[in-house]
Simulated scan of single mutants.
Amino acid sequence: MNEFQVEFVFAIAYWLFAVCFIAPPDAFRNGGLTVQNLFDKFLGSEQMDFVGYHLRRTTITVVCHSALPLGYHLVGGVVSENLNLFNLCYSGLIVQAYFAVAVCALFLGCCVASFWSWNNWMYHPLAKVLGSFNGPWRATASSVNIEFRRIDKFCSRTSTGGSRIYVTDSWVIKTSAYRVDLAHQQNVHLRILQAEEHPMSIETQTAVQFLWIEVQSINVAVKPFTLRVNSTEYGDIKDKLQSPIRNARSVVIHQTLSDQFLKAFKEQVTINQPYFLPSDAPEPERCVGCMAQVSNIKLMKMCRDPTDGDCQQCFCRPMWCLDCMGKWFASRQEQSQPETWMGSSAPCPTCRAKFCLLDVCVIPNVHDTANGTNQS
């Protein structure tokens, strides 16, 4: 391999590394070749100090990425000594111009980092956004940190170029290489912009759909930003959000296998024979599964003759809602054979009496005293 080929291969390898370092794929993240892993001790704990962690992370990321052009010049001088990269007086005009641009890039990166961290991070973009809400920005940062420590927050399992999505009780947050976008849940409008479909996912080797959701805040200091969410996570993020997600373009959202079954489960149960509570029966209590809805399901042997079949009569009082019963039924099935779920059976979650889908009866006109609505 001659000198030119060595230089060419080095250039390709270095800039491929630079691209992967800026937008790290799974292999780089697993190998620890990310800013977060390399400067782990300096950054601290994201779980304990979310705002402080990302103030430091975005700042040091700017410096590291701005140093990549100069790094190419320095490493290239070691690989190809005949280029005289360390002796600019004997280098060509192109090499001298590249060195000047590389030094300027690093200098600008350091200036940005110094400006952001000046006066205890007062001028960092994240601090300015936090300061646009009521009160000092550090008080708002403390509120964000407290909510981020809770285990019930939504965290996107998919990431693009190192970006992550979090939804806490009050905040919608998106972290990327150089910035952190966040908006208060009570002040946002959300809408689906488009769906992005791929015939095969690298992680699952199956078809995958991503939804682009725009987050627009009524706070003028918060710029609109977009969330790229896997359609399989759409139900989870929707449950955590306080505002509805408008689907004005009628984007068809691909559901998970469990979501599809739950939909079919509900459709079948609604056409089953209903169960009417006796006149002297007390009002059903909250579902013991979710404690959110009133129990509106009663298991009654309806599929076959009472003396025949595998199904058994359940004598439990209504204790479950339709959603929780559907999820329980799906969890007791053979996960590798979803085509058999509709015709299979499951044990009662309370007494273990076996029942099938035809035995699930809805209790009509169950009054929800907390919400003031009727569930059927």
Rank of each mutant, 00 (worst) to 15 (best):
V6F: 08
I12S: 07
Y14T: 11
L16Y: 13
L16P: 00
A18E: 06
A18Q: 06
V19K: 05
A23D: 03
P24D: 13
T34H: 14
V35W: 09
N37A: 15
L38V: 15
D40W: 11
D40K: 15
G44L: 07
G44I: 03
D49T: 05
F50K: 02
L55C: 08
R56T: 03
R57Y: 12
T58K: 07
I60W: 14
T61V: 02
S66V: 00
A67T: 03
L68A: 05
L68D: 03
P69T: 09
V75Q: 06
G76M: 09
S80N: 09
L85R: 15
I94L: 13
V95C: 04
Q96P: 00
Y98T: 00
F99S: 07
A100G: 08
V101L: 14
V103R: 01
C104R: 01
L106C: 10
L108M: 10
C111L: 14
V112Y: 11
V112Q: 04
W118T: 01
N120V: 00
N120Q: 07
W121T: 02
L126R: 02
L126Y: 03
L126V: 03
G131M: 08
S132K: 03
N134Y: 05
A139D: 13
A139Q: 10
T140Y: 01
V144W: 02
N145Y: 02
N145M: 01
N145W: 01
R150L: 10
I151T: 14
K153C: 05
C155F: 12
R157C: 06
T160G: 15
S163I: 01
I165L: 06
T168M: 09
W171D: 05
S176Y: 02
R179Q: 11
L190Y: 06
L190G: 03
L193H: 09
A195I: 00
A195V: 01
M200E: 14
T204M: 06
Q205L: 11
A207W: 06
A207G: 15
Q209A: 10
Q209Y: 12
W212K: 10
V215T: 07
V220M: 07
A221Q: 04
K223E: 15
P224N: 11
L227Q: 06
E233D: 14
Y234E: 00
D236T: 08
D236P: 00
Q242D: 09
P244A: 13
V251S: 08
V251G: 07
T256K: 05
S258A: 15
S258K: 11
L262Q: 12
K263F: 11
K266S: 12
K266Q: 10
I271G: 04
P282D: 15
P284L: 12
V288G: 07
A292E: 15
V294N: 06
I297A: 07
I297G: 04
K298C: 12
K301C: 08
R304C: 13
R304A: 12
T307Y: 10
D308Q: 14
D308K: 13
Q313Y: 05
Q313M: 10
Q313P: 00
F315V: 05
C316I: 03
R317L: 12
P318I: 10
M319W: 15
W320I: 09
K327S: 13
R332W: 08
Q337L: 12
T340S: 13
T340H: 08
W341R: 01
S344L: 03
C348Q: 05
C348V: 03
P349S: 12
P349L: 06
A353T: 05
K354F: 10
F355T: 00
C356T: 03
V362K: 10
N365C: 07
H367T: 01
N374V: 07
Q375H: 09
S376E: 08
S376I: 02
